[in-house]
Simulated assay, not measured.
Amino acid sequence: MSGKLHTHHLEDAESFVAAVEQASEERGLRLTPLRKEVLELVAAAGKPVKAYDLLDHLRERHGNAAPPTVYRALDFLLEQGFIHKLESINAYVSCHHPAEAHQVPFLICDNCASAQEVCDARVAELIEAQARAFGFRPQAQTLEVHGLCKRCREG
């Protein structure tokens, strides 16, 4: 993982969902049909997706989906580390490493809304070390860097 930069959605959505299904089975988790469907929608989006966009897609398929249903599924997927929430834009992305718990920074393009996961453990370790140096005990960290991606800068 160290020193590598990956674009979001390294794997295709189908492979990602299969990896989450396997991780769920190994952990004894129940990936309900709704949770799986929300996961598939996040994975297929190809960029950060908002909860209400997910709700709209579910309503197209089922007609009666309600916000609490979507948020419960998202909460489960977040809790298990299968997806990440980008707080600054209030959107969700699938995780490159659904089988392992980790903290990663994201590079978010303010023009096209793409998000890149920075898969470099040194970043999270540095933040945690700095926090400890100040006597601070971190419980979670989210680092989101905003700017323009290469494609938007060159386009």
Rank of each mutant, 00 (worst) to 15 (best):
M1E: 03
K4E: 12
K4L: 09
L5M: 14
H6M: 10
H6I: 03
T7Y: 09
H8I: 07
H9T: 03
L10A: 12
D12G: 12
A13H: 00
A13N: 02
F16N: 01
V17Q: 00
V17E: 03
V17R: 00
A19V: 01
E21F: 05
E21P: 06
E21W: 07
A23H: 01
R27H: 11
R27F: 09
G28T: 14
G28D: 08
L29G: 00
R30E: 12
L31E: 06
T32Q: 13
T32R: 14
P33R: 09
P33M: 12
P33T: 12
L34K: 04
L39F: 01
E40N: 02
L41P: 05
L41K: 06
A43C: 09
A44H: 06
K47T: 06
V49Y: 00
Y52S: 10
Y52M: 08
D53C: 05
L54E: 01
L54Y: 03
D56N: 13
H57M: 12
L58A: 00
E60L: 10
H62S: 12
A65D: 05
A66Y: 11
V70E: 02
Y71R: 15
Y71I: 00
A73I: 05
A73C: 10
A73N: 06
D75F: 01
L77V: 00
L77N: 07
L78G: 01
L78D: 01
E79F: 13
Q80I: 00
I83L: 13
H84Q: 08
K85N: 08
E87K: 13
S88A: 11
I89F: 07
N90C: 13
Y92F: 15
V93N: 02
C95I: 02
H96A: 03
H96P: 02
H96Q: 15
H97R: 14
H97P: 01
A99W: 06
E100V: 15
H102L: 09
V104G: 01
F106A: 02
L107G: 05
L107W: 07
C109E: 04
C109L: 04
D110G: 15
N111H: 13
C112T: 02
S114N: 06
A115N: 00
A115F: 04
Q116H: 11
Q116F: 04
E117P: 05
V118K: 02
C119H: 05
C119R: 07
C119I: 10
D120W: 09
A121C: 13
R122C: 09
R122M: 05
E125Q: 15
E125N: 14
I127N: 04
A131D: 10
A131T: 07
F134E: 11
G135D: 09
F136L: 05
R137M: 05
Q139P: 04
Q139H: 00
Q139E: 14
A140W: 12
G147Q: 09
L148V: 02
L148I: 07
L148P: 00
L148Q: 01
C152I: 06
R153D: 07
